[in-house]
Design a protein around this nucleic acid. Structure first.
Lengths: 222, 222, 222, 222
DNA sequence: GATGAATGAGCATTCATTCAT
DNA sequence: TATGAATGAATGCTCATTCAT
């Protein structure tokens, strides 16, 4: 008189809880990017995400861990994106492309990522300013990667004699990354210019043009 | 076994209270710039400033008002500095100086101010990211001023035919201000490079050189 | 890529669920005796017992009811043990045994029960200290029984002229039960002495010896 | 035009806040002794003590620290009492007193302390059963002290040939302390007997009499 | 029958703020 | 004026409990 019970345990079962978890994450990113970490309460997150507060803590343990998950996940995706997509694609073309094209590709790719994850990046930048631990993560995971790749590109360009002068890499980074960050973080934050009308690709191209060719006519430079 | 304490309360009382008020402000700026506004408690500020919590509220009404005072005071000083010192001095030389020198002067002056008020600026940038009201103040008071002045300079240089191409002012600002912000805010925050060894004036000069003359040799530009 | 799990749910199902129920009870007793009722969470119990939290509530309704079940079951077993085994056996021998033997038997029997149910007894003692309702149960079910039986024994011994003086039963109980409780509850709790090396029977015997014959030589008693 | 201000800073100034602190402690002891630590909420304590919840945390840091303060303070007082009052007084009479008188004094003194601090002792016993850290404190601070003193007394009595047999100290302690604890803790907890009518001194005397002289007539002991 | 996702009331704790002295 | 004792609303978090599957 044995009996058997057939229980469905597959993907669709997980889906509901995974959806809940993701909804919490998305809502939190959205809210923190706008209001900051501290002023965003778990109660508000719960209400906006349509779950109970308990659920947030069930999934993420603590508010701080929820923040870390956002930071870590974004950085993880950034690195995966860099390694698997952006970098190889760019370097595959390193021979037959001008440095202008090379840098454009690199920045355009990253701009795409930053644009797709702009709220998460806002969160990371905010917390990098005030949280020692997140600052260290940012420096160790993101900044070091950006330094490494840019060094590679700059050094090769120098070898090929494509640079006007022996600019040091720090200065090159300051101008290129500075312009770039200013565009994706600062202009977005201040909502200066009519962002909606802009074509990011075009902005990047214009900006790089200016940086690579310089602003002044040769005889204006004292 | 009662005890009595003899306290001097006389002459210079006004001065003393002004000193107290200033010490509170300085301490608060220092702490918020490092830990952020929300995580900094009035209790900590009181301890670090060597006053009681009550005194803080006596002088500044509320924690939010204390923040506003920091923001407003810094912006007030920035504008006074711009109007009274930096701008007139620069424009007085506008005729007899190259645009390179002009821009250098402007940025160097501002760099000096940012450097002297780096903690306050950190606070403003932090809050600009998350506080609607402070963001509006920043846009209305600081950004608009920077836009106005830079427009003036760019337009004049264009008139004089000193620009290679008809770069739009947005792009010019992005590169120049971006590099500049990156240096004073970002590099300081991340503490990348050996900041102590640096000469700010030299950094500004190097950076402007690169921006104005361009990176690539003419024949490297595709 | 859906997955299915085949679970055997048939024959012996009743038995399985009884086992589950018992495992929950045993785990709970173990945990509460060590950590106390309030600090023991149903989540921990579920994990330790290898069931889901839902199952606990399925079987026991509430955490409080689970505690009550532990208390009630232990008391029930104590009374059954007393009535069916310990007491009759002892009283059957009351004629041909000395009071020393009689008391020894009674205490040894109960010591056996306490030892076999030491965790449950810990729970009961703990809760008796703070829970009005359980205290009433303990007084009404356990203490009254112990009082009744001991009164019987003491009174008979007095009748037979076996007691040195007319000690009142309260004092007799205080010394005999006190020593006994101290041994089973307190020494176990504090883990004083090398409990593992001890033979409970021997300890009881030594202790009773001392109580019944007294400590001091006759001429030392002032 | 200097001015001076005379501020009273002496004892009466402290009094108010010390009173508040003490009131919180007393209320907490009373409530925990009756309901247990976990079921007693800081909200209830605040209400009963007539202060705000914030005040509790201002003075004691955390609920756990409040408990520790109760435990530590009681133990500190117990040791001070033992060392400064009870023990010296007793040992000063060790030569000219019988062991019966000696033990009576020791127990009576301690009974007084336990009686005066019965609520605190309830708290300590409760927590000793479930809290590892407090158990260790109890063993290290209280139990070791009681062991040390009793060893001294027992060994001296043995030397003087006042003990009937070579009872080991563990057994002696079990009976004497067991009876004692049973009286102060257990009977108080169960509220058996009409406690109010009792004279603790008399109870102790009766109990010790029984223990020291034994229960049975010599020929009843098999 | 058993699960585990979800809940929300209730908790300890924090902290800006008040106010009598 | 300056203090610091006292406050209590609000927060992050816990956990017994429910219920659809």
């Amino acid at each position: 008189m044995s009996e058997y019970l057939l229980i469905f345990t597959g993907r669709d079962r997980m889906k509901k809880s995974e959806e809940t978890k993701q909804k919490i994450l998305d809502t939190t990113i959205e809210m923190i990017s706008k209001k900051g970490y501290a002023p965003t309460t778990t109660k508000e997150i719960a209400e906006m995400a349509g779950v109970s507060e308990g659920t947030i803590f069930k999934y993420y343990g603590s508010k701080k861990d929820l923040l870390r998950e956002i930071v870590d996940k974004t950085i993880r995706e950034f690195k995966e994106y860099s390694v698997n997509e952006a970098i190889p694609e760019v370097f595959a073309r390193v021979e037959d492309k001008s440095p202008r094209k090379l840098l454009y590709l690199l920045m355009a790719e990253r701009a795409q990522f930053f644009s797709d994850h702009s709220a998460s990046m806002q969160v990371i930048i905010q917390e990098t300013m005030i949280d020692e631990s997140i600052r260290e993560t940012f420096k160790g995971e993101v900044w070091s990667e950006m330094t490494r790749v840019s060094d590679k590109i700059f050094d090769r360009a120098k070898e090929l004699g494509q640079f006007k002068k022996e600019f040091d890499n720090e200065t090159l980074r300051r101008v290129i990354f500075g312009s770039f960050f200013f565009y994706v973080i600062f202009e977005g934050m201040l909502d200066v210019n009519n962002r909606d009308d802009e074509n990011p690709t075009e902005v990047i191209e214009l900006t790089l043009d200016l940086i690579l060719s310089g602003i002044l006519t040769d005889d204006s430079i004292s």
